[in-house]
Every structure is written in C-alpha cells, then in structure tokens.
Design a protein around this nucleic acid. Sequence first.
DNA 1: CTGTTAGCGCCTTCAG
DNA 2: CTGAAGGCGCTAACAG
Lengths: 330, 330
Amino acid sequence: MVTINDIARRAGVSRTTVSRFINESGYVSEKARENISRVIEATGYVPSEQAKSLRLKRTKVIGVVIPKISTETMSRVVNGMDEVLQQEGYQILLASSSLDKEKEIEQLKLLESRRVDGIILVATNREPELLEAVKHLSVPVVAVGQHLPDISSVVYNDYEAAKSLTEEILRAGHTKIGFIGVDEADYSVGVLRKKGFLDALKENGCSVESGWMQTASFSISAGEEAAARLLEQSETLPTAVLAVTDRLAVGAMQTLRKKGFDLPGEMAVAGMGASDMSAYVTPALTTVDYYYEEAGKVSAEILLKAIAGHAKKVEKSQMDYRLLKRDSLR
Amino acid sequence: MVTINDIARRAGVSRTTVSRFINESGYVSEKARENISRVIEATGYVPSEQAKSLRLKRTKVIGVVIPKISTETMSRVVNGMDEVLQQEGYQILLASSSLDKEKEIEQLKLLESRRVDGIILVATNREPELLEAVKHLSVPVVAVGQHLPDISSVVYNDYEAAKSLTEEILRAGHTKIGFIGVDEADYSVGVLRKKGFLDALKENGCSVESGWMQTASFSISAGEEAAARLLEQSETLPTAVLAVTDRLAVGAMQTLRKKGFDLPGEMAVAGMGASDMSAYVTPALTTVDYYYEEAGKVSAEILLKAIAGHAKKVEKSQMDYRLLKRDSLR
DNA sequence: CTGTTAGCGCCTTCAG
DNA sequence: CTGAAGGCGCTAACAG
C-alpha cells in the first residue's frame, strides 16, 4: 500500500509538503503541486484515514448498536441516522447484539476500543449491567427506544400511544379487549405499552380476563401462537385485540382468519409501529406511527451536538406519534 | 483517554510487558500480572484497536456498500453477512449509496481510505465507471447481486427464476401475461428477469402486447401506478401479471383490487423476492425465494477466504431459488 | 522474564 | 514556501 512517504520521495519533496497539498493547509509552490498531483495520480494513492484518526484523535465513525439487523424498525431507524451522519462525513459501524444482553455490552466495549467518536444504542432493556457499562464508556452515547438515566435518550411515547390506541378501540364500541404484549425486560414495549392499555381500560371502567392477556416474542408466528392461546384460554371471547407490534397483530389476524373469524366484524385488531405491511394486509391494519426514521435522525443530531460541544449535557427527546385508523377496527 | 503508557508507568513496568499481558504473548511474571491487571481495572483502560490496526495493518472491519438501508432485502443480506463476520471478529462499516451511482463510487473510495480489510458491494448496476473504480481498489472485493467481470460475485439466478415463475403461470393456464419490470441499468432485476419472462413466453408460443410491459421504480406505489398504466394501455387485458419484486406486486394488487378485479379469479399476480409481507397479503402472493440471508453469508465467506489466502482467485457463486406457490395464482 | 528500539502513516509545531 | 523532528498508541524483534 502506497504511503505519504512514497509520494514525497517520488515527487522529490518532503512528506510535510505532500500533507499540505492534500489538506490544502499552508502554501505549496505551483511546481510542487504539479509533481505531487502527478505522482498521486500515477500511484492511486489514497491517504490513510486510519493513521489520520490516530493522529487527530477522532475517527469520523459512529458506532450503532441494535438488537437485530433484519427488522423493518431497525432498518428505518438506522436509515434516519445515516442520513444525518453521512451529511457530516461520519460513517456507521454496525454492531448487532442479536437480542443478547451480554453481547450488547460486549459490543459497546468493542466500539469503544475502536475509538468511535460516539455511540448510538438502540436499547431493548434497562438492566443494571447495561446501565453500568454505558456509564463507564468514555464516549458520548445516546440511547434510542429506552429512557436510560443520566444518558441522552430519544424515546417513543409508548405509554400515551398505547393509551390513545386503546381509547380508540373503546370509542369503536368494544369493551372486551384482548392484549398481546412482550416480555417486560423490554421496558418501553413490554411495560409502558401494557400500562397504557390497562390504564385506558381502567379509566373507562373496563376489566380484563386473565386469558385475554398474552405474551409473545417479536415474530409474526409468535403472534399467531399468542392469538391461539388467547382464544383457548378465554372464558368469554373479547371482541377486539391490541397487539403491541404490527407483526404480532398480523400473526394474530392470521390465526383468527384461520379459525373462521370475520375481521373486523367478529374481532377487531390493532397493532403498533406502522410497518410497511400494515397498509396492505386485509383488512388494512389500524396502528400507530412512531416516526422511526425521524427518531434515528434526532438521535444522530443529539449525538453530533454532544461530540461537537464537549458539554455533556443530558438531552431527553420524546418522539411524537400518530394514529392510523384503518379497516381492521370499527 | 488512558493509554498503554499510562498503564505501564502506574504498574511500574514497560509498555512491552503490558502488551504481552494483554495479548497473552510471551511470559510475564505473576507479580507483574497482578500489578498490571490491578491498574487496568482501576483505570478502565481499553486498548486502542485503532492504533493496533495501524501497527498490524489490518482493521478487522469490512466495508459494506448497499443501495439503500431501509429495504427488507438489504437488511436480510446484511444480517447474513454480519452473522459470519461477527463470528470471525469482524465488524461492518456501513455505506449507503442511496441509489446514486456517483455516491456508490465515493463510498468505495471512502472505505478504502479507512483501510477496511475487505469490501462487499451490493451493486445495482454494471456501469463502466463502477467497474473501473472497483478494479482500482487495493482491497479484496466481492459483489452481490450483479455479476461483475473479474470480481468475485454472488448472484441470484434471476434469469432462471423469472423463467420458472413464468412457466408456472403458463402452467396455470394463462397465456396473456402482463409484466412490471424496472430500469435496465439494474442488470439483474431489470434485464435478466425480463429476459427470463420473455424467453419463457417465446418458448411456449405466447406473445405480449406492448401495453402489457410496464417499467417502474422499486416502491409499492410505483407498482400501483404501473398496474394502472397497464390496464389503461392494454388493447385486450392480460389475465395474469408478473412483477419483478414483491413490493411492485403488492402495489399492483392494490390497484387491481381498487378497480374491482377479483384476485386471483380475474387477474392472477406473482412477485419475486419472498418478502415477509408476501405471505400475509390477501390473496397470499406467489413469489420466488432468493435466500437473501444466505447470499449475505456466502459473500462474507468468500471475502474472508480472499482476505486469508491472499490469493486473488475470482470466485463466482450462483444462489439457488425456490418457487413459493400461493393463492395469488391459480 | 523484561526493557529498548524502531517503526505503522499521518499531522503539526518550529525553524529555516 | 519548505523540511526536520516529534509523537498519536501499539507491537515486534532484539538484546539482555
């Protein structure tokens, strides 16, 4: 690999001059310019951003930790980040934790060892081990999706969104509503959305049978299974069901249709997340849009600010949401 | 940021010893071990993978250039790559070209300047400028999705897949078949899939009206519009339509349903790509599965091999495919 | 078992 | 306008 020294030698100047030429810092004679640019052309020299980083103590790389690469939500969030980061000359070093809590922490350390200029952590939990690890990082961090104490965070309004959506279902005349949630280790999706659901019911004097409350993982098939369990375990059937993600909702719809339910006539369904798919399933899924791209952008902007103004102010940002009323509920 | 020198000083040894301790290379006395590990513990020292890379001339980072981050196909492919790369201690530096040909080339150079150990290029075209840029790279490259000359490539069997799928439609009794394709700059999707379609028709003695052949970009709404144009411009209506991606197919189905067509009774539809969505739209979409994750894995494996065995053998790999017959066609 | 020395490729004073 | 010298943090001979 050709280096700045090779260029200097072949152009008959010192590497200092070459550096000046490349970075347009300081004067360099017309004659030197010509020589240097000719040699660079001939050799295909590309300055090592790596060596530069070591010297300048900045890498122009942002580490992004996500639970799983191949989900629509994540690709949207990362896309938003990339849009603003690329603008400022940063690149994304991707680190997937595969939903493994230990790996999540490992990845943070790995990114730190690579001396990324900052880290965006799309977190799935708020376990003390994770908080501890984040706190010990010597790099600016912003969390997305979970509100981490003393860390800049971009969070969705999970509680209010779930509550609004539930109220919408109630407004449609349903009083017996089933629920498909996820594990509580995921505070935002597992706890807050459930709480929003339950609070809306309570405020409206509705109660739930225990069989109506189901827990699943994040896949479509988990939604299918949860819906099957819900039907099985119910004393009296609900007339609507709220799933905390669109994928779970789509899975549930699948089961319900198989079991011969008329949708939404005999069973209304609502999801959350406004996935691409939601608009095209039949009936079109009522859901809530969390503006994922925007969340990615905002998190990147906050991080960039933190990197620039070495001030370590903690910034909290709550994303907006909007209800998407469609055919699966009426 | 604490460095190896700080550790050495505070532990009362030379940095060489610290290095030996960290990398478990060479002997280091029990006493020294204790001192060093105590100091490391106390300071939270994390070795700079960056400096190490400069010294060792390898970064353990793989650059991945993709046309767009937020598509299901890409996230699947990248997920596959990550699975095998992570296994070997590599991380992914993501570079999105946003479907811009110049940017695609810029990104390649940027990755090279960062001294990534290798590059995986998910290409959307085979323009001479791109081939030129790739050829000048001093880093191992493997291309995915397009067959680039003299470069290791992992390609889908676009031609055969399109042909098989078309034959399947013919077998279902259709003879008048519409087509929604994409721009020919994308050789694999734009040219090969169309060719497979046309060849299957020709071999079976079927012809197409010009109005039946439509071109669109890659979005669902583009599929809607293309289907509308197809209906408008047809002298006689086809009884089936093949779209080169699932998203286009879903868009087309949307338009057809709006226009009052009974699906698949009055119009059969088929897509390509086996997107998540395809199984859950109504009617479930007949499509072909390209094993995207697997393509990502294979490309990573080929790259790793190239990195290890400095041999620059060009390796070509053709992915398998399989037909997914579902309700949208019969 | 351990330290000294010499860079990896680059930028940045500081003197010409 | 230009070059020499020093050092970013780390590893790898080479001598002890």
